[in-house]
C-alpha cells in the first residue's frame, strides 16, 4: 500500500463525513464551515489525480471567495432552525428509501465496473507537454472556445440581471441626485421673513 492510496482513503473519508455534516448539523455557520472543509478535501483528491490547477482553483475560488461570502450571508440572516427542521422526521423514511436505492445500485455498478480493471477509460489528456495548466488553457482556447465564450455570456447575463433586479428607482427609495445638490440656489433652502411682514 503506497502513500497515495492512504492519502486517498483519509481524505475521501473526511470528504464523506464533512458532507454529511453539512446537511445534518444544526448550526448553519457550522454547516458552511464543513462545506469549506469538504471543498478542501476534494481539492486534495484532485491533486492526487494530477489535476493541480483545478484543485488550486477550487481552493482559491470556492474556499477563498464564494464560501466567505456565503458565511457572511449566513451569519447575517436570522434563520429559525426549529422551523427549518420541522418536516425532518416526516420525510425521513422516503429520504432513506431514495438514498438506499441510489447508493445501493450505484455502488453495485461502480464495484463491478472497476473491480478488476486497472485502466480507466478517461486517460489524462496530454497535448503539449506534461503541464496540466498548459493543457487546460490549450483546450479552452482551441477545442472548447465556443463553450468558453458562452460561459462569458452567462457572466454578462448575471451582471445585467443582478443590476436590473436590485436597482430601484421607486418613490420609497432614498437616493441622492448630485446635480440637484450642486444646482441648488439660496431661495430653495432659505426662507427670509422680514420683521415688518410679520407684524402686519
Amino acid at each position: 500500500m503506497n502513500v497515495e492510496i492512504i492519502i486517498f482513503y483519509i481524505f475521501s473519508l473526511l470528504l464523506l463525513s464533512s458532507s454529511i455534516a453539512v446537511v445534518t448539523l444544526n448550526n448553519p455557520v457550522k454547516s458552511a464551515i464543513s462545506l469549506v472543509f469538504s471543498f478542501f478535501s476534494s481539492a486534495i483528491l484532485w491533486l492526487l489525480l494530477n489535476a493541480e490547477f483545478l484543485s488550486i482553483i477550487l481552493i482559491l475560488v470556492y474556499v477563498g471567495a464564494v464560501m466567505v461570502l456565503f458565511l457572511f450571508v449566513v451569519m447575517m440572516l436570522d434563520i429559525n432552525i426549529s422551523q427549518v427542521q420541522e418536516g425532518f422526521v416526516k420525510y425521513l423514511p422516503i429520504g432513506i428509501f431514495v438514498f438506499a436505492t441510489i447508493a445501493g445500485l450505484l455502488s453495485y455498478f461502480f464495484y463491478n465496473q472497476f473491480e478488476n480493471s486497472d485502466d480507466n477509460i478517461i486517460t489524462s489528456i496530454d497535448l503539449i507537454g506534461t503541464d496540466n495548466t498548459k493543457n487546460l488553457g490549450y483546450l479552452l482556447y482551441t477545442e472548447y472556445i465556443l463553450a468558453f465564450e458562452i460561459a462569458a455570456i452567462i457572466l454578462l447575463l448575471g451582471i445585467i440581471s443582478a443590476i436590473t433586479l436590485t436597482l430601484k428607482k421607486s418613490a420609497t427609495n432614498k437616493y441622492q441626485n448630485p446635480s440637484d445638490q450642486v444646482n441648488v440656489s439660496k431661495k430653495d433652502r432659505l426662507l427670509i421673513i422680514r420683521d415688518e411682514d410679520r407684524i402686519k
Binding site: Y144, A147, I150, I154, G158, S161
Partner: peptide, 14 residues
C-alpha cells in the same frame, strides 16, 4: 453535453 448544459443554464438564468 457541455454546450447543452451551458445553453440550459443561460436559458434558466434569464
Amino acid at each position: 453535453m457541455l454546450l447543452l448544459y451551458l445553453g440550459i443554464e443561460l436559458l434558466s438564468l434569464s
